[in-house]
Nucleic acid binder design. Structure first.
Length: 292
DNA sequence: ACCCGCACCTGTAAGC
DNA sequence: TGCTTACAGGTGCGGG
């Protein structure tokens, strides 16, 4: 479920909940969600939370002893924090809740916080690293520039020479990190560019417009706390749902009318994902006719 | 080198 | 009321 705005919202809510707290205990309910130092003790036990990092859709808890724990939410992952009743409880949890790991933290105020990672579909997971530098070198180096701060030049480089559809490139995390299916469609609508155009045909002026549309769309979505879809699911660490879904212009609106021009919104599979756009507002440029 | 299609997993909603 | 099917916010792999 989570794309950059949802992950950034979770990151900020975690800052509020656990920054400066010490990890007293941790439990690993499903060992196969963890990659790296095996066992619960690898989950930052004994350390104090120094910062919360993010790149694209990836997030990490960095401890004061240097260790880093990456949390990737995949499609259905969530992190929740709540006041812990006592020092002993790291649960109980029901297997049906799909809670795979839990932490007991103690804030400087003395308050205890219970943090839990759940992920029903298990496309997400946890990765441990001896340092933030190792995390960035071994795992985040494969990602392109973060979508909130990408420059038009980097985006242009990613589009150049690509024969696939423009939207397929936006979903490619090695080109631009953080854009997923919702915000690809929303950004393309905001930029008035067709998702089915060939990426390499996008002109310089259009690339600039697209970059600005991506940054503006993601910023507004972060301000709204991300998108929580009708099936619920996504919420931040405090349980707050997002509000940006009310602002979706095209995502999830296939068959409905364009809010800009009234035309019926088109749906097709592009880049392997359901894609919705307005064929009038986002018209592909006219094919150049053979000059004869 | 690039790109597509599919597999990975569970839950939910719609259709019969 | 069931059972079956299609689809869902992401990624990583094999093979064309």
């Amino acid at each position: 479920m989570p794309e950059l705005p949802e992950v950034e919202t979770v990151r900020r809510s975690l800052e509020r909940a656990i920054l400066g707290a010490r990890v007293e205990r941790a439990a690993l309910h499903r060992a196969d969600v963890l990659t790296g130092d095996a066992g619960p003790d690898g989950l930052l036990v004994g350390a104090r939370i120094a910062s919360l990092a993010r790149h694209g859709k990836h997030m990490a808890i960095v401890a004061d002893d240097g260790r880093a724990l990456e949390i990737h939410l995949g499609m259905s992952g969530a992190v929740r924090c709540e006041a812990a009743r006592d020092a002993e409880s790291l649960g109980p949890w029901e297997a049906s809740e799909h809670v795979h790991a839990a932490w007991l933290l103690r804030a400087s105020s003395g308050a205890r916080v219970l943090m839990r990672f759940s992920d029903p579909r298990r496309f997400g997971g946890l990765w441990t690293f001896p340092s933030e530098a190792a995390l960035r070198a071994e795992r985040w180096s494969r990602l392109g520039p973060d979508a909130l701060t990408i420059g038009a030049e980097d985006l242009a480089a990613g589009l150049r020479g690509a024969r696939r559809a423009l939207k397929a490139v936006l979903l490619d995390q090695t080109v631009i990190a953080g854009v997923g299916n919702i915000y690809a469609d929303e950004s393309l609508f905001a930029a008035r560019l067709s998702p089915v155009r060939s990426a390499r045909g996008v002109r310089g002026e259009e690339v600039g417009r697209l970059r600005d549309a991506i940054v503006a769309t993601l910023c507004r979505a972060v301000e709204a706390g991300g998108s929580t879809l009708r099936d619920g699911g996504y919420a931040d660490a405090a349980g707050a749902e997002g509000a940006y879904q009310a602002s979706h212009a095209v995502y999830g609106r296939g068959g409905e009318t364009c809010r800009e021009c009234g035309r019926r919104l088109r749906t097709a599979v592009v880049g392997g994902r359901t894609t919705v756009w307005c064929a009038r507002c986002q018209a592909a440029p006219a094919r150049r006719r053979p000059v004869g």
